[in-house]
Amino acid sequence: MPCTLPAMPRTSAAARPSAHDAALAQRIGERIREARRRGGLTQQQLAGDRYTKAYVSALETGIARPSMVALTYLSQRLGLPPSHFLDEPHPAWSRLEVDMHLAAGEWQAAADGYRTLLQDQLDEPGRAELLRGLAESEARMDHGREAIAAASEAARIFGALQRPADEALSRYWLAYGLYESDNEADARSLLTALLERVRGGLAVEPDFELRLLMALAAVESRSGEHARSLSYLEAARGMAADLDDRRRATFLFSLAVSYRETGDLEAAIRSGTQGLALYRASGADLESAGIENDLALAYLAAGSVERAREMAGQAREQSERLGDDRLLSAILETEAQIALAAGDREAAPA
């Protein structure tokens, strides 16, 4: 039967602050303080109803660096353009803007920005960080080949710099690119090696082991090793309790697929329904459609044809609205299976 597998879990690391970043923050802070004093405002007055006096103080002393959103707001209150507080277009600030595109889910804008910055980035540490950001952007757009190229180079540089945690994150995105390129064997090998290193004491990110387990589950599910996929998810279950709603929904989606593929339909429907509620609550429409399609398959396997038809219909409406052709193709296959089960051969493909 058709199945839309949940993607491998996605993780990103914020850029490490450099001495150059600190100097930039100091200059911005001094200019904010000067403009505030000229305007006769206190720190509390400048903060308005959006920020706090403590945050403005941290900006003015260079402890914190403002986002573009914060700088735009403060600039408006001071009656000055944001450019007043910056040097001429600056690579460090451009890097912040590109990272913000990535954090906001604007994958193509982030990828374009990282490529532009790479044209002028000569030092190896900075280049590796940009490449890792580019790898994540490409992976999130399902551009496996491009993700592999960027992640491979980032991992090589981080390895030479003896930055094992950053190398591990780059290798995670390399595995993601391999997975998207249908190279499950190499993706599995990379992820297994990373899991061994994390369990051996390598500190990467607090939830990195959980993400590796979920990634391995996705690889095994796609490879048809559903019992093995379920074993990884069961190992991850205790770690998933503290995830935010969206990531917990992704975990439940993976669990639902594995339960369905191993024949535990009641557990599949239970996990899928819980995941769907969390996806909807977090506004994840595309992911909601994916899990609705999987629930349709679970209900169909359980003999509930009408409920399967209802879930598939909801999934199709979402995917058509969002314009995701790949998901829509999987949903149409599901609806064809439902039509056959209902004896409606005219609605099913020949």
Rank of each mutant, 00 (worst) to 15 (best):
I338Q: 01
L80E: 05
T250R: 14
A15W: 05
G113P: 00
I331R: 03
S67D: 07
G29R: 01
R248M: 11
Q44L: 12
M8N: 02
R237H: 13
G48C: 13
G283A: 13
P125T: 06
H226L: 00
D166T: 07
L295H: 03
T273L: 10
M100P: 08
E60K: 01
T72W: 15
G105Q: 03
L195I: 11
G133M: 01
R27T: 14
E335Q: 14
E124R: 15
A277Y: 02
D245I: 09
R27L: 14
A336Q: 00
G303F: 07
L80W: 02
L46P: 00
G272H: 03
I148R: 08
A35V: 08
Q44S: 15
R77W: 10
R115M: 11
A128L: 03
V56T: 04
G177C: 08
M214I: 06
D166G: 14
T11S: 11
S57N: 15
A315T: 00
L80Q: 12
R188C: 08
H90R: 08
A249K: 02
L71Q: 00
I148N: 07
D294E: 12
H143I: 06
R65T: 14
S258M: 07
G263L: 01
R77K: 14
I148M: 13
L118G: 02
A150F: 00
L80G: 03
D325T: 11
A215Y: 01
E209Y: 02
L59R: 02
Y259K: 05
Q274A: 11
A187R: 04
R246P: 01
L297I: 06
L278E: 01
A13W: 09
M68G: 13
A277F: 10
L194C: 01
A217N: 02
Q26D: 11
Q26C: 13
L297R: 08
Q162I: 15
G275A: 03
G177H: 04
A58H: 07
R228W: 13
G144Y: 04
Y259G: 01
Q108C: 08
R65Y: 10
P82S: 11
S189T: 12
S152F: 03
A70L: 14
A22F: 09
S254F: 05
S271T: 06
I148G: 03
S304N: 14
R248W: 09
E310N: 11
E346D: 14
L190H: 09
G200V: 00
R38P: 04
L202G: 01
E320M: 11
S221T: 13
A301F: 05
G133L: 04
E196S: 13
R307H: 14
A175P: 01
D87A: 15
V98F: 02
V198E: 04
Q44A: 10
D264V: 10
D49Y: 10
Y172H: 06
S94G: 12
R345Q: 15
L328K: 03
R31L: 12
G126R: 00
A147L: 05
P206G: 09
G159T: 06
E124V: 09
F253R: 03
C3P: 10
A215I: 02
L191M: 02
L213T: 03
I269T: 04
